[in-house]
Design a protein around this nucleic acid. Structure first.
Length: 227
DNA sequence: AATATTCTCAACCGCTCACGA
DNA sequence: TTCGTGAGCGGTTGAGAATAT
């Protein structure tokens, strides 16, 4: 199958759109719709390929597109769906009204990936090992990190279930999300994201309060999902 | 203040899919 | 069934902004 070039390489503009070009595209699509993206630029008086026009309209010019920072709820949704669907950005975008696949993809690569992509294989120090912090809290030691994070026992249990589920290949390990509810302790997670349990008094010489990148990630991974 | 490095995000590229002739 | 075409998707790029040194 021979592919026709998406645009005539001679004379078609590339690069950033000017306000004038935006205006022409908006005017045309508003009046006549996008009945054929390939032919549209010709009728709209634009020296652009149809593909470029389509992208510009869908990602920036259409009236229902939402701009600005992602809310925490949106970020949670993206992470959850990415776990489930992988890099199917358009499918993820379908769950976030007003957000485009391109925007979500960019946000993932620039912000969320760093926080959520490395799945923690948490090794827990259990009560048996004499390292329980308090009745309701449990310390978690990340495999690749010498410092500790403090999370709730329930959250730790949820992660265990998650890991087991992943190993068993069921439901991408996300089934626990449906049933798990975190106590109020994390209600203010997004506003006070790195709050540490002050009730915990570390043993002398212990290393606890160093919230490394991994710790922060762990904290967000554990609690960000469940709030 | 100047320069280097890193980050962000708009836009492009190339591929696949769906559909019609 | 095969081929041509348009639309859509995901990966990648690169310019400008922000931050670090």
């Amino acid at each position: 199958m021979v592919r026709t070039p998406c645009c005539d390489k001679n004379g078609l503009k590339k690069g950033p759109w000017t306000p004038e070009e935006d205006r022409k595209l908006i005017d045309y699509v508003t009046k006549y719709g996008h009945w054929n993206w390939r032919l549209l630029p010709k009728f709209a008086g634009l020296a652009r390929c149809g593909k470029s026009c389509r992208l510009r309209w869908l990602n920036y010019l259409r009236p229902d597109v939402k701009r600005g920072n992602f809310s925490h709820e949106e970020e949670e949704t993206i992470v959850r769906l990415h776990e489930k669907l992988g890099n199917r950005w358009s499918a993820i975008a379908a769950e976030l009204p007003g957000r485009t696949d391109n925007e979500i993809k960019n946000h993932w690569h620039t912000a969320l990936k760093k926080r959520f992509e490395r799945k923690p294989k948490a090794k827990r120090r259990t009560e048996k090992e004499g390292n329980v912090v308090s009745k309701s809290m449990e310390r978690v030691v990340l495999e690749n990190c010498s410092e500790y994070a403090v999370i709730t026992t329930d959250a730790a249990a949820a992660i265990t279930n998650h890991e087991n589920s992943v190993l068993e290949g069921d439901d991408y390990g996300l089934s626990f999300l449906d049933t798990y509810t975190e106590p109020d302790v994390c209600a203010n997670f997004w506003t006070e994201p790195y709050l540490i349990d002050n009730s915990y008094v570390p043993p002398e010489g212990d290393v606890v309060e160093l919230w490394s990148h991994n710790d922060l990630y762990m904290h967000e991974y554990c609690e960000g999902f469940f709030c």
